[in-house]
Write a protein that binds this DNA or RNA. Structure first.
Lengths: 158, 158
DNA sequence: ATTAATGCAAAAGTTTTGCATCGTT
DNA sequence: AACGATGCAAAACTTTTGCATTAAT
């Protein structure tokens, strides 16, 4: 299995700058700021949350710009939108060339843990074939309760 | 592995009626009609589509009532909402006590195929445990292309 | 100077809700 | 008769878009 070296990974800001230049777009301070805040955060951010954080640095940035920038980052392959059954779209950074991953979400406290299971991935591929599909991508989310000690919601409730 | 007999399965309409009575609600013709149309259809219906079909029988039914009824059906355990990455919520009938299933979706033509893979289910359970979660439920969607002959989109395009 | 990006506000799309009225119990 | 459900329209909420202005190239 070919393994990408981490050394190949570029600073997301550089990826963005490259993309922007290549497409005759512009590298604005808003884009830079939004990207910085996005990649500095822990991921799984809703657009509103991102805007909030961005506005701590520049209170003038508009919601529309955040939406437009997240779309741009998605086009660059730097971000990926999710819908965890909620109303709002959640973005997470795609970590360079690293492995794809799935999510486990705590139904009590909302904690999100990322994981990969190669055996599952393999079986998904086979399941698709068995049903006459060529698998392109997938989404898998597990929902459950995280153990007591890890769940802030539990400790809150005593 | 305990196996439910199909004989136990009730007519969804009866389940609804029971639920409604038990909760001091009312069994209206709109609810009956919406449930009938919903269960007669092939599932994976968006609310708009459902409304359209419902209005073929009674043009007076409102969108709000369809939304409210689908919520009711969800509470009864008769329907289940999905978001296949699209904007609109899609409902599908939960088939009595039958097995849970996942989905494969054709990115070309939108065809949806249901499937179950017990080995995947098992591994999901283990993956959750390994990450300190007690698995309650999951969602898994595979995206890909269905083979030429099955894909109406392909034949359309020649 | 050119042309894309921004901010704003309005629009669009989906879902929910308030309320007067209707229909089931 | 009582009270939940309905239809309608308005509201709520998320995301997109048009446009005049600003800023990156």
């Amino acid at each position: 299995m070919p393994q990408k070296t981490k050394a190949e990974r570029q600073d997301p800001r550089d990826v963005l700058r490259e993309y922007v230049v290549k497409n005759g777009l512009k590298f604005t301070k808003q884009r830079e700021l939004i990207a910085d805040v996005f990649f500095a955060s822990e991921g799984h951010l809703r657009v509103e949350e991102l805007l909030e954080k961005v506005r701590e640095q520049d209170s003038q940035v508009s919601l529309a710009t955040v939406y437009r920038t997240m779309k741009l980052l998605t086009d660059c392959g730097l971000a990926h939108p999710h819908r965890f059954g909620e109303r709002q779209t959640v973005y997470e950074p795609t970590e360079g060339d690293e492995e794809h991953h799935d999510h486990i979400i705590c139904v009590d406290c909302g904690k999100i843990v990322e994981f990969v299971d190669d055996r599952i991935e393999e079986l998904q591929d086979l399941a698709a074939q068995r049903n006459g599909f060529k698998l392109a991508s997938h989404r898998m989310e597990l929902y459950g309760n995280c153990v007591k000690l890890d769940c802030p919601e539990r400790s809150k409730e005593g």
